[in-house]
C-alpha cells in the first residue's frame, strides 16, 4: 500500500529506536503513510500496524488520539487555523471566519471542488506569529491577514 520511497522513510525512522521498540516509529510511519495517501483509511492503518508489527487496534489508537491524523478524505489542501485565545486576541478567530466565508465551508468541511478542507486547530506553539495557519500539516503560515490569506489561497492549486 506504500511506495518503496515511503517504506524507506519508515525504515529510516525505525533506525532511531532500539530494535525491540519498533512501536516507537508508529507515529512517523502513520505520518508518512498519510502524506502519501492524504488520509488514513482503516486498511492503511492496518498495513502500517503490520509493517511495524503491532496489533492493528494499537495503531488505530494512535491514529485517533493525535488530531493531525485524518481518518476521512480531505481536500488537496488542508488548512488549519489556530483559534485559541492568544491567537484569537491577534485575529486568529477572525482569520478562521474569513476563511469560512471565502471558501463557503465550515470547520471540518471540504470545498465542493475538493480543493480545500478547513480545520479549527488548537495551539500550535506559534502564538507570536498570529494569526497562524497550518497548510497540509507541515507548512506554517504566519500573520495571516485577509490579504495574506488571499495570496496564499491563490498559490494553492
Amino acid at each position: 500500500m506504500l511506495t518503496p520511497e515511503s517504506l524507506a522513510q519508515i525504515d529510516r525512522e525505525l533506525t532511531k529506536y532500539p530494535a525491540d521498540q519498533r512501536r516507537s516509529a508508529t507515529m512517523s510511519a502513520l505520518r508518512i503513510a498519510q502524506v502519501e495517501h492524504r488520509w488514513l483509511s482503516n486498511e492503511l492503518i492496518e498495513f502500517v500496524a503490520n509493517y511495524i508489527g503491532i496489533p492493528p487496534v494499537a495503531a488505530y489508537e494512535v491514529a485517533t488520539f493525535y488530531n493531525m491524523f485524518d481518518r476521512k478524505p480531505v481536500g488537496r489542501h488542508k488548512l488549519t487555523v489556530c483559534t485559541n485565545l492568544p491567537c484569537a486576541l491577534s485575529g486568529g478567530a477572525d482569520a478562521g471566519k474569513y476563511l469560512q466565508q471565502k471558501l463557503g465551508i465550515g470547520y471540518g468541511e471540504t470545498t465542493a471542488d475538493g480543493r480545500f478542507t478547513l480545520m479549527e486547530g488548537e495551539c500550535m506553539g506559534a502564538c507570536g506569529y498570529a494569526p497562524v495557519m497550518l497548510v497540509n500539516n507541515h507548512s506554517m503560515c504566519n500573520h495571516m491577514t485577509p490579504e495574506a490569506i488571499d495570496k496564499k489561497l491563490a498559490e494553492l492549486e
Binding site: N42, E46, P55, P56, V57, A58, Y60, E61, A63, T64, F65, N67
Partner: peptide
C-alpha cells in the same frame, strides 16, 4: 496476550473497541 481491544479516541470521545470490523 494480544491486544484485541483498545481505547481509540481522546478525552471523552475515547471508546473501547476492537479494530474496525474485527
Amino acid at each position: 496476550g494480544y491486544q484485541e481491544l483498545g481505547m481509540p479516541g481522546r478525552g471523552e470521545h475515547t471508546e473501547v473497541m476492537s479494530f474496525i470490523g474485527k
